[in-house]
Structure formats: C-alpha cells, structure tokens
Design a protein around this nucleic acid. Structure first.
Length: 959
RNA sequence: GCCGGGUUGGUGGAAUCGGUAUACACACGGUCCUCAAAAGACCGCGCUUCACGGCAUGCGGGUUCGAGUCCCGCACCCGGCACCA
C-alpha cells in the first residue's frame, strides 16, 4: 500500500481509499458468489428458479469469449466485458431476467503454440490460464452467472460440437425447399427414383441400387453439408496446417504467424457454406448490426447477378460467367484460367495458319506454349501474382470459339488474370468495357469493338482510347443480329433483353454467382476437437453414433504440429493424431457387427467451438440434448421486433466481421433448418467496441522502452535521460506499454477502473489509455462517499429532511439523462451526468437528503457495483442493490424553473435572458426586443425578421 | 483503385432534431488547510485584445435568419476489399 493512502487514513479514517475499496470489493464479490446473485432462472430444468423472474422479459447479453492466453489480461481486454456488465446490471434493474456469463474459447492455434513454447501439455497450460484469467476477471466485479460458464475444451461441451458436426455431415441442402434436410431423405429420393442419381466421372448414370457402398458415399459426398474432397487448399508449411480462405491475408500469408501460404491439392473436410450464400446475405437485413460489418459480410459473400453463356468450340463448349451480358457483342477473345480442365482438351497439335507471333510466346506448338505458361503460373506464389498484377501475361491455346450472339470466331487464351476459383474459371473478354481485358488486348494486339457509346467525348474509334470505357450509365451500340438488337438500350434493359434471347436459344441463362467459397474445416493440429468420423476398409466415412460421443482427444507423447520451412511448398501436412496407431485403428460395431476402422486424424478449426456457444450458455449441463427446446425458445426465440430471434446484445471486436460471425450464422441456420433451435440467427444486435490504444515510446534504434518509466518535459519525452519518440499503438508486452487491470485495481479499486474505462469516450471508438487520468473517477467515488458517509466516524451523514427544490431538479434531470444514456450504451455521458449531480450536491453544502442520496446510489450502481452495494447497505437496506428498481424521473422536476434564452442578431449571441419555460413566442419576442443590450447592438437599425423558438432562442435579422 | 469510418481546447471527449460550441474529466495555474509535504477543499483555464470586441469545430465553397451538424470539392488519418469477370 502506498504512503499516500496510509497517511490519508490517519487524517480521515473512513475516507474512500484504495485500501477501503479493496476491502469492500472483496467482501461483495464473496457475497455475490455465496448468494448466487447473478443466477438467471430458466423457465424449466435444473436452472429453473423464481418463476416471477423467469416470467419477466428476457435479455441475453453476451461478450465474445476470450482465448485464455498465458500473457494474462491488460486493461484493454475487459473494456467490452465491463460495458456488457454495466448494461446487464441496468437491464436487471429495469425489470428484465438477464442472462450474462462468460466462457472460454480454449482450443486452437494460440493456446497450442503457447503450450508448445512452454513445453507443457496444452490442457495443463490452458486450464492454468483459465484459472488465472478467471481470477483477474473476478476482481472486476463482473456479474456473471457462473453456473453457466464452460470452456470449449471440456469434453461435455465438445461432445455437442461433435454432435453438431454430425448433424451437418448427415444433411444436405435442398435448393427447392431452400433448407437443409436429413441425408436419409435424399437417399430415399435416389432409391425411389424421384431424384436422378448424378452421372459419374465417365458420364455414365446408374440406378442407386446398382451402386457400390463406396460409389454411394461418393455421390452423397457431393450433397452433404460437411464433406471431404480433394481440392486446392491453402497450405501453410510454416504452421504445418491448411487454412480457411478467411484466415489468409490479401497478400497470401497466414493471418496468424504471417507465413507464406501455397495452393496445394489435398483431401480435406469442407463445410458447404456456399449453399447458404443467399440466406446469409438476405437475413442481414433483419439484424441490428453496424452497417460496416453487414457490408463486410455482403462483400465477402460477394453476390453478383449476371449470366452464364456457352461458347461452342470443337464439339466442346466453354461456359463463362459475366455480369455484363449486354456487352456480348463486344467479346473479341476468351480467357481460361491456367488450371481450367478444358485447356488440355482444346489445345490442338499445331498452331492454326497465320497465328500472330505475339500469341505463341515463341513456342513451336500450342501444347508447349500452354505447358510452359501453366508451369510458370503454378510456380508463382499468391504474393508474386499480386505484385505482377499490372502486367498482363498469357498465351494463345491454338483454338477458336464461337461467339453465340454473332457467330464470330474468337481466339481462346490462357492467362493468370482469370482465376479458377471464381465463376466458371473462364471469361469472355470485352476489351472496350473492361480495363483488364483492355490491357490484355493491347498487349496481344487483339481487336477492341466499341459496344457502349462513350459519354465522355472520347468517340467510338477505339484505336485512340487510353483505357476501357466501363460506365454503366450509357447506351449500347453496334449490338444486333438477325433476331435481336440491343442498340440504343440502357445497360439494364440490354441485359434483360439479351438474357431472355439466350434463354430462348438455349445458349445461356441468367444466374447469380458468389465470391464465397466453401469453408475448409480440417486442421493438422492436436489441440482441437477430433472428428467423430471413422473410415472402413473401402475408405468410406462413417459417423460415430451419438452414444460414442464425446470422442475424446487421446493422450499423446508428442502433440506439437509438424512444421516445415515456411517457403517450401513441396511439403504436405502430417496430423499429430496419426502418430498414435492405437487410437487410430479401432474395432467398432456401428450397427452391422464389429469391424475394423481407421479414425479421422484431422481436428476441427478453432472456430468450431465458438460457432454455437451462445446455445450452451442456455442449458449448460444438459447431457441429453444440445439445448432444451423450451429453454432455447425462451432466451433465443423470435418475437416482436426480432423476427429472426437471437442474442439481445453481442459485444466484441470488429476483427471477427467475416470469420466467427459468418460461421456462427451458418451453423445457426443449419440447426434451425433441422429443427433443433428456433432462431435462424444467433446474434440479433451486434456492437463493436473500439480498442484501447497506448503510447509506445521508442529509442533512437527504434526499440520500445518501458512506457511507465518515460518522463515528459515540455512536450518532449525522455527515457533514462535520452530522448524517445512517442507514437500511438496497441497495448502489449512486446511494446512495453501494457497496463494490467490488477495494478489499477490495487492503486484505486475495481470500481474506479470500471468508471474510467466507461468514461474514456464512446464505446465504439478507439482511444488512448492514460493512467494519470484514472484518478478523476477515483475522486468521483470519493466525493460520492463523502456525500453519504462521515469520513471521521464512518456513520451515515445524510439528512432526513426533504430535499430542496434545486437538488430535486438536479436529481431528476440526472435520472432522466442517465436512463437514456445507459439504454443507448452511452456510458461516458451517463457518468458525466452522475458527476454533475454529485458535484451539485457537494457544492450546495450541508447534508444530502436521504432520498436524493439513495437515488444517486442506485444511479451509479450498474457502473460501480461494489460502492453501490456498500452505500446501499450503509443507508439501511438489507437487500442487494443488484435487483432494486432503477430510479424513474419525475417529469415535473426535469423541466427547469427558469431557462436561459439566447438572443441572437444574425446568428450571433448578443444577450441571455432568464425566462419561464412556458413563455409564449409573442411574449418572448417582446422581452427580447426590449432588452437594452439588444437595443444597443441593433443601434437604431430596423428589423426585417424575428425568428422565435420559445423558450430557448430569439434570432433577429436587421434590415 | 473501390467501399466504409473519422478530423472539435494542451489531452480524452460533449453538443441525440440545423438553434447558447467546448458538458464531464485529465493536465496546467492560483488560493485555503498544513511546520512542511501528500491527500483534500475552493477558484481559474479555446485563441486574441488593456478593454469594447474579434476569431475559432482539418481546408475551400454553398444552402439557411442561423451550420460542428445539411450539400459540393479538397487534404490528411484509420479500417476493409482488391486482376472477382
């Protein structure tokens, strides 16, 4: 304990000090735990409670749950937790049954890498970290229902993660019903012939009954919502695992670790999230989310409307996707992605007569040219491909396709500016209307046909153009054949007409294309949920029955991942679980006798556990069901104002915009379709809190120096006498600027920390931490304490007399404002209003009236719960303040007795008048025009106009 | 390049509907208490001017009786996407 406090204690033994705060806080935290103060009753089951509370309207208030990292918390981490806690407390005091708790997302790369670094088993280190983090969080006085907390690594929890995986594995998406359905219903359709069995690789079709079990599994794999497939995936040798697209940065590196990522063809598990692309976009409309996040999801899913068009070539056909079918008449060549499967089939043995030299790349035959180009393209990493994006490269494959709208022969190229992963991996090139096609056409001396009339005066002679004319706001020209003409039409009308024509002729159709890819769901890690999948001797995947769940992670000698030289693409992943032959090879009876099986040795990605955890908070001990339907309906069900249902408030960082938030929405929709839950959306309202930033001080070499030891002199900064540079950055150990909640709690107490974090500014904006400024909120609590408690005796000092008129007005204005601010999550201004009221009471001198003091304590209780409880108790109440009613303002006292009216001349304030709030416009105008300062300022000038907004404003416009 | 968000005192920020710009807090300066210091209490605090006043919400225009707020243009900062057909 610091000297300052001990000295102060002598002067005023009952002053609110850090020592006293520590004592009060520890006492109330124990009280809350012992009395289950924050336990929210369910309507039924093992957590059923007081029915009068369970009948209240519910509020489910949630944080994005943390990774229990070994580094512990700094003051930035609990910002959101404090905000949801304040909001939850306010909702509890306004008549709601509030579910508020916190679990731990403990599987995944960070936990495992920490475990690898420290040499201990991930479970041991993770559980120790959870214990540590729980202690740090408990110190903050968060009102969590602790019965509902869990970690994703608990076998009782991941049993249900595995169960959901099997639900997804054992279902398919029915495009007609726009819903997931059990896979057995698809099998029934194949058996009855209601649905045709798709043709195999060789194009032959057989009846379901003629297929072998392996063939059937292959067919079903094309439909299952979770499926294994051989496809190019993101392979990261540096991490030793494959990654989802969402985990790879724009420059082709891993989001974690920043290692290069390569495309490699591997058999991996995927989730068919693309089946839900439409619903994932459409349902955003009903959500109360920041528009920026909705936009990011829409962009990530990337819905584009356009058309598929077939270009015949040598008995085959190239199908392209285009968003601009209106420009088909301007298609002068085609491009296939280097990996496109038709490239080999279409490449002839020799160059056609008269092939342009620049098209051949100097090769003797098309096959040679194509092979060389493909090899060169494949060796490029994504990073190189990005860097060279400006230079258009490619090679002619020696074949011509027919443009279906005008019969023209157009050359077919391969070029890496067309990506196999988007659309059909093939494009029609319209150089007049697309900048990329324009650059390629110029490089390869291809014709450029003007099919949109330029509106910028450049004219229709494309040989003079410097770039493509890509406007949507122009008329189509030079676009007609014997049956259809687009000339003179707008882009939109031309699209509609040509799409209709193509559909009639059977050469193309309108379609919607998505940027979203299926979600790569397997990782080569130890520290994740094992897949509840085994393979029989034919390699057919079987799901384990529910009775065999959870499939627990085996204890292994070596759980560390096999990593490789980060730049070595010629490596392939090795799963830690595959090293354990005893576990991998099993004898099981899956319904047709005991047989030998091999277990799947991949594990699920760290996102799996966070895809459904909101549901487990509802019914955390249910061993029979994912969640009891009645309980789920109560907390998550759709209702007025929230037709899709979901969590009432979800607070977390914006970095999860397209990862966790997209995956969790997808799982919710599958579980909803299959009838397990009543809400198709997990999170109705989302709020992104800003970051707490911190100053980083760097020495002359650029290394961070300990921020706490930097001295400021005349706006310059020095460390050990040497000048250092200050910049604003993140808070963290490596930047030597971390401030822990523990040290702030020790110095001032948790209530001060809570108030400071909430008072710093609006919750959604980032702002710098300033330890020096924390004392301001400590002083607020000290003054509040002094307004209620005698510092020398410790007894309550409030007066039993009725409050004076002034204090009543100050109180009710504060109540009115604080209520609205807390409802709107404007915690900073709520604190300002409480401070104002408290300052008013301090300044008016004499004892504060009991009724005012009590309401003030109730106002601050959600923000500073320990002081709230302690003062409430001192004021003679024997109940917890947590469930008291939040004060309600009396409108009679919210209005001032007299208000200040400003008198402006041409918008400039010239005089202020004290007037009655009920003054009429006419009366006010008269008073204003008679005021001597106004008369003086007008200086005899006539009056042209007077605007009166009683009672606040008069504006005079002189002639 | 495209999309989204931002720029208010020395500092964090307030002004929710176009109507008193700078609430609340930090820092700073002063006074009281004290042998002294700390803590605490009280006062001051956008810039400029002796003062009357004038000027200030990134910059330049506009609409309006009146603009931090609405419109047009520009600069800078932060975030997202990016050869997506």
């Amino acid at each position: 304990m610091s000297e300052t406090n001990s000295a102060a204690e002598v002067a005023a033994p009952h002053r609110y000090t850090a020592t006293m705060a520590a004592d009060i806080e520890a006492r109330w935290q124990d009280f809350w735990d012992e009395n289950g103060t924050y336990e929210a009753p369910n309507p039924s089951g093992d957590m059923a409670g007081d029915p009068s509370v369970a009948d209240r309207s519910k509020k489910f208030i949630m944080d994005m749950f943390p990774y229990p990292s070994g580094a512990g918390l700094h003051v930035g981490h609990p910002l959101g937790y404090i905000a949801t806690d304040v909001f939850a407390r306010f909702q509890r005091m306004t008549g709601h049954n509030v579910l508020h708790t916190l679990g731990f997302d403990a599987f995944g790369l960070p936990a495992e890498q920490y475990a690898v670094q420290t040499g201990t088993h991930p479970r041991v280190s993770t559980e120790a970290n959870i214990v540590n983090m729980k202690a740090q969080l408990r110190r903050l006085g968060l009102g969590h229902d602790k019965r509902r907390s869990f970690a994703t690594i608990d076998p009782e929890y991941y049993k249900w993660t595995q169960w959901i995986f099997l639900q997804i594995f054992n279902s398919w998406y029915d495009d007609d019903a726009k819903s997931a359905r059990p896979i057995a219903e698809l099998v029934a359709q194949f058996e009855s012939g209601e649905r045709a069995v798709p043709a195999d690789e060789n194009g032959t079709t057989r009846a379901w009954s003629e297929l072998s079990p392996a063939d059937r599994a292959e067919v079903l794999g094309q439909y299952r919502l979770a499926y294994a497939s051989d496809a190019p995936v993101n392979w990261c040798p540096g991490l030793g695992t494959v990654l989802a697209n969402e985990e790879v940065t724009a420059d082709g590196r891993s989001e974690r670790g920043n290692f290069p990522v390569f495309k490699s063809k591997l058999r991996q598990w995927n989730m068919r999230i693309t089946a839900y692309a439409d619903r994932l976009i459409d349902d955003l409309d009903g959500l109360d989310w920041p528009e920026a996040i909705k936009l990011q999801q829409r962009n990530w899913i990337g819905r584009s409307e356009g058309a598929r068009v077939d270009f015949p070539v040598d008995g085959e056909r190239i199908t392209v996707f285009t968003t601009r079918p209106d420009t088909l008449f301007g298609a002068t060549y085609m491009v296939l992605a280097p990996e496109h499967p038709l490239v080999e089939k279409l490449t002839p043995s020799a160059w056609p007569e008269g092939t342009h030299d620049v098209w051949t790349g100097g090769h003797a035959t098309p096959a040679e040219a194509v092979a060389a180009y493909r090899k060169q393209a494949a060796s490029k990493s994504d990073v190189e491909r990005q860097a060279e994006a400006k230079d258009k490269t490619g090679v002619f494959i020696g074949a011509y396709a027919t443009n279906p709208v005008n019969g023209q022969q157009v050359p077919v190229f391969v070029a890496d500016y067309v990506l196999m992963g988007y659309g059909t991996g093939a494009i029609m090139a319209v150089p007049a209307g697309d900048q990329r096609d324009f650059e390629f056409a110029r490089a390869f001396e291809l014709p450029i046909h003007c099919i949109v009339e330029p509106t910028d005066g450049r004219g229709t002679d494309t040989s003079t153009w410097e770039d493509a004319f890509a406007s949507y706001d122009a008329k189509i020209i030079n676009s007609s054949n014997d049956e259809v003409s687009l000339d003179g039409l707008s882009v939109a009308d031309a699209k509609a007409r040509i799409t209709e024509w193509m559909a009639q002729r059977g050469v193309g159709e309108g379609t919607v294309n998505f940027r979203l890819r299926d979600w790569l769901f397997s990782r080569q890690r130890y520290w994740g949920e094992p897949f509840p999948i085994v393979y029989d001797e034919d390699g057919v995947a079987h799901s384990l029955p529910e009775s065999m769940l959870p499939l627990e992670l085996p204890e292994v000698e070596d759980y560390s991942p096999r990593t490789f030289d980060p730049d070595d693409a010629d490596t392939s992943p090795e799963t830690p679980l595959s090293r354990n032959e005893d576990w991998v090879n099993v004898q099981l009876d899956l319904g047709d006798g005991v047989k030998s099986y091999r277990r799947e040795t991949n594990t699920m990605p760290n996102w799996a556990g966070s895809c459904w955890y909101e549901l487990r908070y509802l019914d955390p001990h249910n061993d029979e069901k994912l969640v009891d339907p009645e309980i789920e309906q109560y907390w998550m069900g759709p209702r007025e104002g929230q037709p899709t249902g979901g969590v009432d408030l979800y607070v977390g960082g914006a970095e999860h915009a397209v990862l966790h938030l997209l995956y969790a929405r997808f799982w919710s929709k599958v579980l909803f379709d299959l009838g397990h839950i009543s809400s198709a959306e997990p999170f109705h309202k989302l709020f992104n809190q800003g970051m707490i930033q911190a100053y980083v001080y760097r020495d002359s070499r650029g290394f961070p120096v300990p921020a706490a030891e930097v001295e400021e002199r005349d706006g310059k900064y020095f460390f050990e006498g040497e000048p250092v540079k200050r910049e604003l950055g993140k808070m963290g150990k490596s930047l030597k600027n971390a401030v822990t909640p523990d040290e702030i709690c020790a110095e001032y107490g948790a209530d001060t920390l809570r108030l400071y974090e909430m008072a710093m500014g609006p919750l959604d904006v980032s702002r710098p931490w300033d330890t020096r400024a924390v004392v301001g909120q400590f002083r607020l609590l000290q003054r509040l304490w002094r307004n209620v408690v005698d510092e020398s005796t410790g007894s309550v000092s409030v007066s039993e007399d009725a409050p004076d008129e002034d204090s009543l007005r100050a109180l009710h204005k504060a109540i009115d404002g604080v209520r609205q601010d807390l409802e709107g999550m404007r915690f900073n201004t709520a604190i300002a209003k409480i401070t104002e009221l408290n300052n008013h009471l301090t300044k008016s001198g004499g004892a504060v009236s009991r009724s005012v003091a009590e309401q003030l304590v109730l106002l601050i209780a959600p923000l500073a719960p320990h002081v709230g409880e302690e003062l409430w108790r001192k004021l003679g109440h024997d109940t917890s303040v947590v469930h008291e009613d939040f004060p309600v303002a009396d409108p009679a006292y919210v209005v001032d007795e007299a208000v200040t009216c400003v008198v402006q001349i041409k918008g400039k304030v010239k005089a202020r008048l004290e007037v009655s709030p009920s003054i009429s416009d006419e009366e006010l105008e008269k008073v204003a025009l008679g005021d001597e300062r106004v008369v003086a300022a007008l200086d005899g000038a006539g009056i042209r106009k007077v605007i009166v907004r009683a009672p606040k404003l008069v504006n005079i416009v002189p002639a």
